[in-house]
Design a protein around this nucleic acid. Structure first.
Length: 364
DNA sequence: GTTGAGCGTT
């Protein structure tokens, strides 16, 4: 018959953080690169993450035609590949592309994370949330955020799975929960820079009943704990100091569950302003080196951040990245902005997407 | 009895 069947579309996303777009499949089951490029300009191929593999796997490409993997197009979300080298393009665009690619790669490391659930019915409670997502795998965290005054749900929450496969599945679709469509996303909460000199870890989102002993008992599994500090009166955070700096660093950026609560571990802010300035400089250099590593480009410690590993970061871009690291807003990175601050600065926008007027030369 | 885009923590 002429009726369209399932399998007519492939879910494709820019990366694991962005929403997927459905791209039509040809009648013979193949996918044209030109159709992918219609949604993702510049796309030259696809990759995906098989459930049984920890690495990405490339999709077979012959003469502009992409051939489905063994499990077919429906088995997972596919990710867009772009040409690494765009030297024929104008230089400004090249720089932007490099930084955007690098920052995206840094943010798509495969790891289990808390997931934000948006659009929950105001009536949904944590038990119902856990029950719903239990169909995808073992749920180790279920939270509904409430208004502290009224005690009522704010319509969003967080879930966390025990395994990465369940997380990928939950992220790949929209969810009907309690009669409403809900979105599940990787949280875009603030990214905190890592500082190799720092042996203190900030522990955020601590419940009020956490004691210093609770924290010490949990964190001693990672290495020798030399101090635990919980401010009084209660301020919902604490600090762990390790004897070993690399132990502290390895924990920063993770979410861990202690006594059933998800806490976020981040680099502690240095105690005084002088140390803070010093650490910002180290942080920027460290991050740029990290970007190079993420792209598989060697960037030795002696290299200057503005011309290393084939990158050509302009001062404006370094400023944008520095600002992003300090504010957690990556929206301006890669567009040559970020040097302006205050009310006139561009507002935050969707991750990695330049604002509509970025090509224009603004009047100064 | 109200609401509907967002994002938890220094």
């Amino acid at each position: 018959g002429t009726k369209r069947s399932m399998g007519d579309f492939v879910k494709i996303a820019e990366n694991e953080r962005d929403d997927a777009v459905e791209v039509p499949v040809e009648k013979n089951g193949t996918l044209l690169v030109s159709n992918v490029a219609a949604q993702f300009p510049g796309a030259c191929g696809l990759r995906y993450r098989p459930l049984d593999a920890q690495s990405y796997r490339g999709v077979r490409l012959v003469d502009g035609v992409l051939h489905p993997p063994g499990d077919g197009w429906k088995s997972c979300v596919f990710f867009v590949n772009y040409p690494r080298d765009l030297r024929s393009q104008e230089k400004r665009k090249l720089e932007e592309s490099d930084v955007v690619t690098a920052t995206k790669l840094l943010c798509t490391e495969p790891r289990i994370s808390d997931l934000v659930v948006l659009g929950l019915p105001f009536s949904t409670n944590e038990e119902e949330l856990k029950d719903y997502f239990g169909a995808f795998g073992t749920v180790v965290l279920s939270q509904v955020k409430n208004d502290p005054v009224t005690g009522k749900s704010k319509g969003f929450g967080f879930v966390r799975f025990a395994d990465y496969e369940s997380q990928l599945k939950a992220l790949s679709m929209r969810h009907m929960i309690g009669g409403r469509w809900c979105d599940v996303k990787l949280p875009q909460s603030k990214m905190y820079p890592q500082d190799p000199e720092q042996n203190r870890v900030f522990v955020g989102r601590c419940p009020e009943d956490f004691t210093a002993e609770d924290l010490r008992e949990y964190f001693c599994q990672f290495g020798e704990v030399t101090d635990v500090y919980i401010p009084k009166p209660f301020r919902s955070f604490g600090f762990i100091t390790f004897a070993n700096e690399s132990v502290a660093q390895s924990l920063c950026g993770q979410d861990v569950i202690i006594k059933g609560s998800s806490v976020h571990l981040a680099t502690a802010e240095p105690k005084n302003a002088a140390m803070r300035r010093q650490s910002r400089l180290a942080t920027t250099q460290n991050t740029l080196a990290g970007l190079g590593a993420a792209l598989g480009i060697g960037m030795n410690a002696a290299a200057t951040p503005t011309s290393a590993g084939g990158f050509n970061f302009t001062p404006a871009m370094v400023a944008a990245m520095t600002q992003a690291l300090q504010t957690g807003n990556w929206g301006n990175v890669g567009m040559g902005g970020g040097q302006r601050q205050g009310p006139e600065a561009s507002p935050p926008n969707a991750y990695g997407r330049p604002p509509g007027n970025w090509r224009g030369r603004s009047r100064t």
